[in-house]
Design a binder for these strands. Structure first.
Lengths: 148, 148
DNA sequence: TTAGATGCAAACGGTTTGCAGGGAA
DNA sequence: TTCCCTGCAAACCGTTTGCATCTAA
């Protein structure tokens, strides 16, 4: 992806967040946009502490309270997703606009690989029909190790 | 299921645990078997605090430390499974010997329904082949609400 | 007898909360 | 000017740990 493209992508994301904040009468503070920028500038999963340290290294100091607060907004407007890979702390990642994806976690290192298999959508439809419910989101994670 | 049958089932479970403890040179303490019994006497999910209180109500006092310790053993020998349904505390349930099952969680109440769809095994095979890994376990959970 | 297990309470660590000060609208 | 938001630090709470005591083997 070219630099121009990723800039365009971030502009889209910024617009989505801006509209979300306006729609909910939330203030457009510089902290909120800086956090959004930091999240979209890096790939992969992160937890709050990692994000906190990363922003400090980039000479931008925010409080953990603001990070938790802002992540909540980003989750609510769908720009970030939350994972709980069997640990007792949450991990996040920027939302994939193009397709949903699921995870394989290496049990020894915690490293995450991503995949997508459309059969999950069939299972989802099965569940919605079986229980007469609406599924708003789901989590599919495999855990294991290298073959031998 | 008759009373006789469920007693037989618990005898099996007790035997599995006993053999596990012997194989690993762990002591067969009364606490460990009482905890196992308490877990298999009730259905559904539970967390450590709930189990702790339930045992207290049954006039059997164990420390939380022993509960955490014993749960770890039960997980290791496959008699109990652990879930982390997006919260920051773990939930457990006795292992289903007959079939694996997955969950639908009501977002408002936290209530859990269980289901099984064999297409998950196809996805598992796909992932193992894709990444050249062995999957030791997995987690599939849908979240949502009643249809209207 | 003795190494491993228990119970208690303190420590730990991620997350939440209360509040004074600051800044977006 | 208003009152929502931020930063800080304390509180919170599920989980882990240290240690004296106990007990299964």
């Amino acid at each position: 992806m070219t630099k121009k493209n990723s800039e365009e992508t971030f502009e889209n994301v910024k617009k989505i967040f801006t509209e979300y904040l306006e729609r909910h009468a939330h203030r457009k503070t510089p902290e909120r946009f800086t956090i959004l920028k930091e999240i979209f500038a890096t790939d992969g999963h992160f937890d709050i502490e990692t994000l906190y340290i990363r922003m400090k290294n980039h000479k931008y100091r925010v409080s953990r309270a603001t990070l938790y607060n802002t992540i909540e907004l980003l989750l609510d407007c769908g720009l970030v997703t939350k994972h709980q890979f069997g640990t007792n702390y949450a991990q996040f990642e920027k939302a994939m606009m193009l397709k949903l994806h699921d995870h394989f976690i290496f049990e020894d290192t915690g490293e995450a690989l991503e995949f997508y298999d459309s059969r999950i959508d069939e299972i989802k439809a099965y569940v919605e029909n079986l229980f007469n419910v609406n599924v708003s989101h789901y989590s599919l994670t495999f855990y294991g190790n290298s073959h031998q």
